[in-house]
Nucleic acid binder design. Structure first.
Lengths: 146, 146
DNA sequence: ATCCTTATTGAGAATCATTTGCACCAAACT
DNA sequence: AGTTTGGTGCAAATGATTCTCAATAAGGAT
C-alpha cells in the first residue's frame, strides 16, 4: 500500500470515519494528478466511477486535514490544491498577468521557519509561500509595448 | 499627501483611469483599518458616503494591482486583505482549529527570496507566506483531551 | 455470513461572495 | 462650459461551495 493510502486510512480510523469507495477515488485522483487541481478538475477525472461533485468537495477538507494535500493557490475564484507527500515544499511564483505559476524549492527557507515555529510553539501542518508579480516574459512585454 | 494617496493617483493616471470620490473612500478606509479586512467590512466603514458594495469590489483589484494592498488570507469563504505600505511584510501563522492568525516578521527571509527572484527574473509585487497548523493553545488542548 | 448502527452518498436545491449589465453621473481634458 | 469617456449604484446574474434528505454502504458485533 502506498504511503498516501495508509496515511489516509489511519487518519480516518482515528476520527471514526469510514474509508469509502468514493473517498478512495478522490484520494487516488489527487495523487495521480501531478499539477495543481481544483475540485471540478478532480471530479472530471473520476466521474466515471459515480462519485459526485459534492463528495469531492466533502473529501477535500479531509485530505487537507490529513496533511495529504494543501491549498496551492486561489485563482480565478477557485481553490487549487496539490498533493504534498514526497514533494519537497515549494514556492509559487504567480504571474499576475499571464497567471502562470512557477515553482521553486522552499528547502533553504525551512530552517528559519522551523526555528520561528519553535519560538511561538506552533505546530506546522502546511506552508504556502506565494509570490505575486510579473514573470520575465510579461515583464519584457510591458517594456516593449511602451 | 500621504504616500498611499500619491501612489494610487499615479497608478490611476498611468492607466488612464480616474480618481473618483468612491475610489478615494475605499483607499482611505483600507489604510485606516489596521487589521485584515474583507470587502463587506470595508464597505461597512464607508457606506455613509454612498459608496456601493459593487464599487468596493471593483476597487479592490486596483489597489491590489497598484501594490497597495495584498490578499492576507482566505477564510470562511471570503478574501481578507491588508494594506502593505510602511508595513514590514510578514508571515501569517493560521491556526486550523481556532482560526486565529498570528503575524511575525518576514524580514529575515527576504534576502533569500530576492536572490531567487533575480535568478528567475521575477518582479515581486507581493509576498504571502501563510503557515497552517495548530497554535500552542489548541495544541495543548488536543493533548489534554486524549 | 448476516445484522445493525451510523456515517456517507448522489442529486439537486440553497447559499453567498463576487461579478455584471445598464441607464444615469462625474472626472478631466479642450 | 462642453464633450468625451470612464465610473457608479442598483439589481440581477453567476458560479463555487455547502447543505438537505432519502437511500446506501462501511464495519463492528453476533
Amino acid at each position: 500500500m502506498q504511503e498516501h493510502e495508509s496515511r489516509f486510512k489511519t487518519f480516518l480510523k482515528e476520527k471514526g470515519l469510514k474509508l469509502t469507495q468514493s473517498r478512495y477515488s478522490v484520494l487516488e485522483a489527487a495523487f495521480r494528478l501531478h499539477e495543481h487541481f481544483d475540485a471540478e478538475t478532480l471530479y472530471s477525472h473520476i466521474k466515471q466511477s459515480n462519485v459526485s461533485l459534492a463528495t469531492v468537495y466533502r473529501t477535500l477538507p479531509l485530505l487537507l486535514e490529513a496533511g495529504l494535500i494543501q491549498l496551492a493557490v486561489r485563482s480565478e475564484g477557485r481553490d487549487r490544491f496539490e498533493h504534498i507527500l514526497g514533494h519537497p515544499r515549494h514556492v509559487h511564483w504567480i504571474c499576475e498577468k499571464c497567471k502562470s505559476v512557477v515553482e521553486t524549492d522552499l528547502a533553504t527557507l525551512l530552517p528559519a521557519l522551523q526555528r520561528e515555529a519553535g519560538d511561538i510553539k506552533f505546530d506546522i501542518a502546511s506552508i504556502t509561500l506565494n509570490i505575486s508579480g510579473l514573470c520575465w516574459k510579461c515583464r519584457n512585454y510591458e517594456n516593449e509595448s511602451q
